[in-house]
Design a protein around this nucleic acid. Structure first.
Length: 502
RNA sequence: GACCGGUUCGUCUAGGGGUUAGGACACCGCCCUUUCACGGCGGCAACACGGGUUCAAAUCCCGUACCGGUUACCA
């Protein structure tokens, strides 16, 4: 039988980092075994589901390049099937109508309310004490025919237990007594999650359900539904959860943008790098390798390598340089500086375009220069954004001067205000006679430095600040050459940075 | 509260009876150097606790603590 897995997000927000990892693991598993990776949008919560959210999730998956097979299934389209499954169980006596009026929602926090009620019921709650559980079929039918509203609940047996062998957590068992007669169909005819999931997974012929550990206990309820429906349950594999630095829940509300996939796309992350990072959050191939191509991940992925303990997504809200997990940033930088240049260029181009720094010549006459420049400056960059921010001076005359750089490299050496324009004149004179190459530049700058009786670093760093606006970057000789003679002369003579501090 | 699960450096993790408990990120130091967030070398830093079992326990068993999940006519 072909392996079929699915990623089934509910469209109530953007693609969360935890969901993204669930999607990735499903994808990797499917590709590893040569199976199908399906997508199902669980949009049955009409009140909270939005089309915008669906689009955002699809965008996130597309960005991560997790292509699904077959048509996307929208759970809401299957509501009739879910209802008929509930009616079938009702007809077979495996479910019953519950005429208890629907409880009014309390104004307090839902979760708290549930926990509180459970605590109050402590020791006295019998999961089988519903007065309608054993109502005769005739009476039940009569009341329903009379128009009395009812929910349909699964009739869970009194004695026994559910059991399944989770591919990650091992054998899981639960006494029936700990599971209530769960509602299958709401009194307004709306199918509930557990029923819908089971019906759809059956319909889609899902063989492996790989999802968050928050569903581990729900699984027992779903097993009960599978059994009532007479279908063999699929294999389950539950994933450890991704937590906030305080080991609490990672939520949009509390943590904002850091948990959204689109944030990473917009912040200049490479999908390959982020995927790599995500893959290592809760899974390991049992070796010391850290950088994996998609192909390697697919080849090495296994359910056995998934961990059982939750992982912390380690970001620092107060530190802008560590706004997200250190390792994710490091990995992105690692990809940027080590991936084949030709693979990187297609990502740099749109970044420069967005920043209005792109020129068609870079694809044409100046392609050689462009490639060398990108290769030169990528060494110290973390994200694609750096190409248009820190790298701006390589592509435009309109760039800012970093205050700290100006302070450190210019203000401290007032002589530079006349020396650097002087160096520009020297360049102008010298490079009329000889070629503007790193080697020749070095000779000229060195002799200029000696004449002034200063240190090479003073001249170089002053020039760096004027030429690039920042204090960090590649070898200055390479920078001089890359910026080009004409612009170098112009920038060395410019008083803009000096005027700004005056 | 009940049920279920988890616990190795700050973080991600390797290791599943005998290891100087390994790697990565972060951090610190040194080197390279005209700067640096590149690179090289090095350092700091962990088996939650208590009992067992065993010649031997991070590893197996039990308990405790702590953390997490679930406990809806949400998904």
């Amino acid at each position: 039988m072909t392996t079929r897995v699915r990623f089934a997000p509910s469209p109530t927000g953007y693609l969360h980092i935890g969901s993204a990892r669930t999607a990735l693991f499903n994808y990797l598993y499917a590709r590893h075994v040569g199976g199908k990776f399906l997508l199902r949008i669980e949009d049955t919560d009409i009140a909270r589901s939005t089309e915008e959210s669906t689009r955002s999730i699809l965008d996130g998956l597309a960005w991560l390049e997790l292509e699904h097979d077959e048509e996307i299934v929208f759970q809401s389209d299957n509501a009739d099937k879910h209802r008929s499954a509930a009616r079938k169980l009702l007809a077979e006596g495996k479910a019953y109508r519950d005429f208890t009026p629907k409880a009014e929602p309390t104004d307090q926090n839902v979760k708290e309310g549930i926990a509180e009620r459970a605590r109050a019921n402590q020791g006295v709650k019998n999961m089988r004490d519903n007065p309608y559980r054993d109502l005769s079929a005739n009476e039940s039918d009569a009341r329903a025919a009379a128009g009395e509203p009812f929910a349909i609940r699964l009739k869970v047996a009194e004695h026994g237990r559910t059991a399944f062998d989770d591919a990650v957590y091992g054998i899981q068992e639960r006494e029936y007594a700990d599971t209530e007669d769960l509602v299958l169909l709401r009194s307004d005819g709306h199918p509930l999650y557990n029923l819908a999931v089971v019906c759809d997974d059956i319909e889609m012929q899902i063989t492996h359900v790989i999802r968050g550990q928050d569903h581990l206990t729900n699984t027992h309820k779903q097993i009960l539904i599978y059994e009532a429906l007479g279908v063999t349950p699929p294999t389950f594999a539950h994933l450890p959860l991704i937590m906030a630095p305080n080991k609490g829940k990672l939520s949009k509300r509390k943590h904002g943008e850091v948990v959204s996939m689109t944030t990473y796309r917009d912040a200049g992350f490479l999908a390959a790098a982020f995927r790599n990072f995500l893959a290592l959050l809760g899974w390991s191939a049992g070796e010391e390798q850290e950088i994996y191509s998609l192909e390697e991940l697919i080849q090495k992925f296994s359910l056995e390598g998934i961990h059982r303990s939750n992982a912390v997504f380690n970001f620092h809200e107060s530190d802008p340089r560590k706004w997200t997990d250190d390792k994710a940033i490091w990995m992105n930088a690692e990809y940027i500086r080590t991936m084949p240049l030709e693979d990187l260029l297609p990502f740099v181009k749109p970044e420069l375009k967005t920043a209005k720094l792109w020129r068609e010549e870079y694809d044409d006459d100046e392609r050689g220069w462009f490639e060398r420049t990108i290769d030169l400056i990528r060494q110290r960059f973390f994200t694609l954004k750096d190409f248009s921010a820190q790298g701006r001076a390589y592509f435009s005359e309109d760039y800012d001067f970093d205050a700290a750089a100006v302070e450190k490299n210019l203000v401290k050496f007032p002589d530079l205000r006349s020396w650097l324009p002087e160096l520009a004149d020297r360049f102008e004179a010298e490079f009329e006679k000889q070629r503007y190459t790193e080697e020749n530049i070095e000779t000229v700058v060195k002799s200029f430095t000696e004449e002034k009786g200063t240190k090479l670093g003073v001249i170089m760093n002053g020039a760096r600040t004027l030429l690039t606006g920042v204090a960090v970057g590649p070898s200055m000789l390479a920078v001089f050459e890359t910026i080009g003679l004409e612009k170098t002369i112009m920038r060395l003579k410019s008083q803009v940075a000096w005027n700004a501090v005056a």
